[in-house]
Design a protein around this nucleic acid. Structure first.
Lengths: 140, 140
DNA sequence: TTACCTCCCGACTTTTCGAATCTAGATAAA
DNA sequence: TTTATCTAGATTCGAAAAGTCGGGAGGTAA
């Protein structure tokens, strides 16, 4: 369904969200995701996130990556659809000469909309909160 | 998102649904989908549909394929999830040792459920009806 | 009985695309 | 200037999807 890019991007962004007061270097991010994301891949993803304005960067020493907005203002849909565009627009025919095509395309569209609705309704802050619940459970 | 198998399967099944009173030969089916599905691929898909009990067959002269249930009793989800299993279960980890994994997996699960809900709510009869609306519009 | 029509089915090739890697360059702070 | 960091592309690799092929087997009707 969605590719690893979305998966990785979410992991990375959640780590950034956890430390939203400062810049994290690549090494810190990789530590944060428990080395589950290859370095070069992470760089690429962060690049895309930056160009989209979701992440800001600081070069040189003490540099790194940080979210450019508070976690509560970043919807999961922003992340996912940025990295997996295909998952968004399934079948973009210019028009439908055949009725059969139209009907099936409408079906995919409905699916698409339901996905969009779900991902739109969740922010990074929501996910952070959920994550803390897990952690609390473990520590009790 | 979904593969061509789902797309093709839906086309084929809709053609069968349109003529649910008799067996359609492969040639007739291919005509019905306007040659948009390669013959050999269609055979493969029909085979899967047959083994799943959605389609029944008749060999020899006058033989062919037909739905084994009325279109109103066949949900789109049956077709789609039969041919694209991956689209159903995204990430089936046995358990979640890392909180980060849990949270993200829960996200995918919610997406998955929304897709399932959508596809469950639509039957072949619904799609046929919609198709007829298109046709009527055209002929006015 | 037999000739023909239809489905049946596994093995194969080609193509596509995601995942990961590599290499080189640009920028900014110390 | 040096060093740590980000920027960016090209390339390789592998798996899975898409599509193909050829023979086989069962059924019908004349």
């Amino acid at each position: 369904m969605f590719t690893m890019r979305s998966e990785y991007a979410l992991r990375i962004v959640l780590v950034l969200a956890k430390n939203c007061d400062r810049y994290l270097s690549m090494s810190e991010i990789l530590e944060g995701v428990k080395r589950s994301v290859p370095r070069e891949f992470a760089e690429k993803i962060l690049n895309i996130l930056k160009r989209a304005g979701i992440v800001k960067t600081q070069r040189g020493r003490q540099g790194g990556y940080a979210l450019s907005k508070p976690p509560g203002e970043i919807r999961v849909s922003e992340i996912v659809f940025l990295l997996d565009r295909k998952s968004r627009v399934f079948y973009e025919f210019p028009d439908c000469p055949e009725e059969l095509d139209c009907v099936i395309r409408n079906l995919w569209k409905r699916v698409e909309e339901s996905i969009e609705k779900t991902l739109d309704s969740i922010t990074l802050a929501d996910m952070l909160e959920e994550q803390e619940k897990f952690t609390r459970k473990k520590c009790v």
